[in-house]
Amino acid sequence: MRILLVEDSPRLRELLVETIHKVEWRVDAVDTVANAQAAIAVAPYDLLLVDLGLPDGDGLDLIRGIRAEGQTTPVLILTARGAVDERITGLDAGADDYLVKPFNHHELLARCRALLRRAPAHVADLIELGHVAFDPTSAVLSCAGKTVALSPRERSVLAVLLRNAGSVVPKERIEAKLSEFGDELSANAIELAVSRLRRRLDGIEAGLSIETVRGAGYLLRDLTNA
């Protein structure tokens, strides 16, 4: 995993690099828009961490530039601009997520992992969360080296939740995924599938919890990080 960090504060840059190194990801740290553009031009990155207020320009311009070139590398904005409208501006510019300073290393790494899981470049990779590993290609779930049997509907629900772990996934999005299988969905099909999946995960002590956020969707939580 290779990450580009664009941050102008030397001390914060140093701390972020230290945090990222602890999870054994590689990180290149630069302090200006120009240096970031030069780095992106010569090396492929899995994730960009971009501060907005940089000495030679705005991080938003850097993000707009790489999106204009058609690059799909996930971008996480790290900024002190915390207002909602500023967050919307950042996301509109092409960022995938927005982390307002101050934040702790758990928060930072969780956001990075979430973005990396969702990244198209990593679709074929193994998704590891809690005590389980899930192979999206083969749709096989394993826990402590043992394969866990799941129904096709449970597998597709789990795949959606794992890719969006730590976020509330609207029920409609899961319905759309299940519809891809041509299933006729009954009114409580999603609830039933989630309920079964929840029991299954509890049974294997997966270290995961599926919360029903009534009226909003479902939330998959990694209990091992809590």
């Binding site: 972020l16 230290e18 207020g53 790290l78 002190a80 915390g82 307002v100 101050p102 702790n104």
Partner: peptide, 30 residues
């Protein structure tokens, strides 16, 4: 906006720094 930027960045440094310290006192400071 300027105040937010000037204060939030040092706070982020403090949080990350504290995160590297394995101590209950560090958690309280966090």
């Amino acid at each position: 906006t300027a105040v937010a930027h000037e204060i939030r960045t040092p706070l982020a440094m403090m949080q990350l720094e504290l995160g590297q310290i394995d101590s209950p006192r560090a958690r309280r400071m966090e």
